[in-house]
Simulated scan of single mutants.
Amino acid sequence: MSSIKQFQVTFDCAEPERLARFWCEVLGYAVPPAPEGFDTWDEFNRSLPPEQRDSAFACSDPSGVGPRLYFQRVPEGKVVKNRVHLCVRAGTGLVGEERLATLQAECARLVALGAVCERVMLADEENESCIVMRDIEGNEFCLD
């Protein structure tokens, strides 16, 4: 039995390209080049049948380390809490006030991109500080 070494994270969403570009900014990811034969993604999109236009988009870690993110349009909106969420590791290795300040600075950057800060969870006896946020379509994620 083989062991899977790579995986993709898929987001159901209303606006795939918009959400993909948001996550590119969050994670430093890149949009891959347009398919062969097309100069731009817009040109490729216009070549599709109307019902397939703007239906999906993807981005990936330029270093090749992180998973590919895939965004697919679905007709229904988000109605309940995510069962799975991304944790953006902005404070890895930091503790106390230094960690909190780093997380708050990253939170401010992401809010400027359209994210929403839900709550700041301060360190306690067991856990370091983290910040619960929502992306531009309301999906929960954490800064930790």
Score class of each variant (00 low, 15 high):
E97Q: 15
A58V: 11
N127I: 06
P35H: 00
E76C: 04
V74E: 00
E126F: 13
F57L: 07
G64V: 13
P50E: 07
R83V: 09
E51I: 12
R46K: 08
S129V: 10
S55T: 15
G37Q: 02
G91L: 11
V120G: 05
C13K: 01
R109P: 07
M133Y: 00
R109F: 10
K5N: 14
C142F: 15
Q72S: 11
V79I: 11
M1V: 12
C107G: 08
K81D: 12
Q8E: 14
N139G: 04
R18V: 13
G28W: 11
V9H: 05
V26Q: 00
M121D: 11
G96L: 12
L122G: 05
G77N: 04
V88R: 00
S60A: 06
S2H: 14
E106G: 08
T10G: 13
E25G: 07
P49V: 08
Y29F: 15
F38Q: 00
L19H: 02
P35F: 02
G64L: 08
R134C: 10
C13G: 05
G28S: 10
P33W: 01
P49I: 05
R53W: 14
D12N: 10
G138K: 00
T10D: 15
R68D: 10
E43K: 03
C117K: 11
V132L: 15
L69G: 10
F22L: 06
D144A: 03
M1E: 05
S3E: 12
N45H: 12
V31A: 01
F38W: 06
R99I: 14
E25T: 03
F7P: 12
